[in-house]
Design a protein around this nucleic acid. Structure first.
Ligand SMILES: [Zn+2]
Length: 274
DNA sequence: CATTTCTCCTGTTAGC
DNA sequence: TGCTAACAGGAGAAAT
């Protein structure tokens, strides 16, 4: 699942290939992925526009286009966005293709077709639900222990559910929520307001460490994730608990357990996490 | 408002 | 070997 480190890796890969390039043609093979406006209007609005900047907010990619408009892409579950040579694309799941005024094309591939595309005038970006309401990101200046304490103080929901709430923290998904709780030694179903100050400190540090390591390792390819060159990441070799049900905890050797929390697979060590 | 559950979506995999 | 059912989860909507 593309989370903050995966989307940021893609952004870094693509930046030099698409910034200052012009979009010369748009192929939309699956129109329903374009959520706003219609696919035809979308094509008309981005055609001939130059890409001025490539930014990321949480798990969203923002292509800042000429004319004060922004193309917004969310990869959701199985979305891939990669650069390729024109005429050299072989991808049965390709859904949208942007042709550039270079010899390259920007390919959007998505096996399960849950991804979302929008184009909006910059002053209307707030209409994309979830984008303007994103909470502070891990590793950012406002992401502090006292911030965590404040948002968890009066919340009784399970800590893992809250870590997945993008309005509270921007960029965490299922893999790094499990990994962060494992590193912090916290049981995923603990009520958020039951964490003491030591645990809040540990969780804050763990989230930053987990995200930082995932960035260094260019993301986690558990299954579908690919970077901006359609290559796999490396962080899957450094996971502590995610996807490791039945295997040994790297800290204590106990068997990793998988439960369901908030409708999501949740992995933890019963010996290390309380 | 806070929290939980449901829905979308389809390739892959486990199991009979 | 071949078919079916379970499984994966981000985010918004709906329900509690
Ligand atoms: Zn352990």
């Amino acid at each position: 699942m593309p989370e903050l480190p995966e989307v940021e890796t893609i952004r870094r890969n693509l930046e030099s290939h698409i910034v200052d390039k012009q979009i010369t043609a748009v192929d939309i093979f699956l129109p329903r992925l374009v959520k706003w406006p219609s696919a035809d209007e979308f094509r008309a609005r981005v055609l001939k526009k130059k890409i001025n900047r490539l930014e990321r907010k949480g798990k969203y990619l923002l292509l800042r286009l000429q004319g004060d408009i922004t193309l917004i892409i969310h990869l959701r579950m199985t979305g891939q966005l990669y650069i390729a040579e024109a005429g050299h694309v072989t991808d049965r799941f390709e859904r949208i293709r942007l042709h550039l005024d270079s010899e390259e094309v920007l390919v959007y591939s998505d096996a399960r077709t849950l991804g979302t595309w929008y184009v909006m005038p910059d002053h209307e970006l707030g209409r994309v639900h979830g984008l303007e309401s994103l909470g502070p990101e891990p590793l950012s200046e406002p992401f502090t222990v006292s911030y965590l304490a404040a948002i968890f103080r009066s919340r009784t929901g399970k800590i893992k559910s809250l870590l997945l709430n993008q309005e509270l923290i921007g960029g965490l998904g299922n893999i790094y929520a499990d990994e962060s709780l494992a590193l912090a030694g916290i049981y995923p179903e603990r009520p958020a307001n039951s964490l003491n100050s030591d645990e809040l400190e540990a969780l804050h540090q763990a989230i930053n460490t987990v995200i930082s390591q995932a960035l260094q390792n260019a993301g986690t390819t558990f299954r579908d994730y690919r970077n901006g060159y359609r290559q796999e990441g490396h962080n899957q070799h450094h996971l502590r608990v995610y996807g490791r049900k039945g295997q040994a905890c790297p800290i204590c050797g106990s068997t990793i357990v998988r439960i369901e929390t908030a409708g999501r697979g949740t992995h933890y060590c019963p010996q290390c996490q309380h």
